[in-house]
Simulated assay, not measured.
Amino acid sequence: MTGIHKRHWPGDKDRPALALHCMMGSAGYWGPIARRLEGRVDLTGFDMPGHGRSGPWMEGTEGPDFHTAVTRIAASFIDRPLDLIGHSLGATVALRIAIAAPEAVRSLTLIEPVLFAAAPNAEQDARGRIITGHLAQGHIEDAARAFIDLWGAQPFDDLPPPACRMMTDQIRLVAATDDTLTHDRANILRDGGLEAIDAPVLIIAGERSPAVIHAIAEALAARLADVGRASVPGAGHMLPLTHPDETAGLIAVNLDRA
């Protein structure tokens, strides 16, 4: 792993915030959200390893797994209580941080958290097997297509060729997070962990997202002390990109709650 690219949208210096992007995304998509928040928070983001302008992810035999590495990078940006915002994989990282250090979180906004272990689902398990099967057979582009056609903002074959190549390069990172997201390798769901979060939490889902997302939101909300839920009409998994007005508005609601 080489350099991590940081992004910053200036705002209220007394209200730091950290935003964590999804798999195959980059921190750049928080820009429209930051503009709509109009400086109410001083927002920082970073491109995860292998994403955006950051260096590639180089897994070592004795180093941390990808999810742990991203969590450690995110934690390095925190030096005082802040508003933590995460989307998809980024939401699971945000949740992991909030459980490990609840005193560091002023508010927690989870957009489409993909912690599949919270709501085991046979359909989702089958999707995972399709991707790992393609990878095992060396059909890397087919694996990327299967992933993006479900979770992306548009079908894989409608994307520009450079984007397809980039996502094909990144698809192995999806498999690399399976132990954490599907089997809870990081023990995010441990007894008392979610219950220890005393910051206001908002879980946001797209109305048209796969059913497993809504089941995850329900399972997490049942264990959180101060939680709200929201569904964005007409939106799918990539709602920060497709519905920035609604996403920013809901983030603002949770900021006000803190």
Rank of each mutant, 00 (worst) to 15 (best):
V93G: 01
R106D: 02
T68P: 09
E103A: 14
E141K: 10
G60V: 06
A104Q: 12
D125Q: 14
T92W: 03
E123I: 08
T168I: 06
E112F: 05
G152D: 03
P64H: 01
G50H: 05
G55V: 08
C164H: 00
S88L: 09
H51E: 08
N121V: 10
A94R: 04
M167K: 14
R35Q: 15
G138H: 00
D169Q: 14
R96Q: 13
L95V: 04
G90R: 04
I148N: 11
I73N: 02
H51Y: 12
A118Y: 10
P120Y: 06
I99L: 02
R96D: 14
A74K: 02
D83E: 10
A119S: 14
A101T: 04
M166N: 01
I78W: 05
A143D: 08
D79L: 01
E62T: 11
A119G: 12
A74M: 05
I131M: 12
G152T: 12
T68E: 15
A100C: 10
I131W: 05
A122T: 15
A136Q: 14
T92I: 09
P155L: 13
A75H: 06
P161R: 13
T168K: 04
L84Y: 06
I130K: 11
V174Y: 14
G50M: 05
L37Y: 03
A75F: 06
L110Y: 07
G138N: 11
V41F: 03
P162V: 11
P120F: 12
A74L: 10
A136D: 15
F116M: 12
V70N: 12
T168G: 15
P161Y: 01
L108V: 09
N121A: 08
W57G: 05
D42K: 13
A163L: 13
D65Y: 03
I73A: 05
A146P: 04
G52V: 02
E59Y: 00
V105I: 14
T109H: 01
A163E: 13
R96F: 00
Q170M: 15
E59V: 05
G60K: 01
S88H: 12
E123L: 10
R36D: 07
G128D: 13
L95S: 06
A117Q: 13
W151D: 07
P32S: 02
I140Y: 00
D142G: 09
M167D: 01
P162T: 08
E62R: 15
D47C: 03
I171N: 06
D83Y: 02
H87E: 02
R172M: 10
G86E: 10
A136L: 09
A101H: 15
Q154D: 03
M167F: 12
A144L: 02
Q124M: 15
V114L: 00
A69P: 13
W57Q: 04
V41L: 09
I33W: 07
I140R: 15
A118S: 13
A104G: 04
I148C: 12
E103L: 01
F66A: 04
T132Q: 13
L159F: 04
D158T: 14
H134G: 06
H134D: 09
F66H: 12
D158F: 02
C164L: 12
I99C: 15
V93W: 07
L173C: 02
G138C: 11
L150C: 09
H51V: 09
L43Y: 00
L108K: 05
F77V: 08
I73T: 10
T61L: 13
R36Q: 08
I85H: 03
L115I: 14
C164T: 05
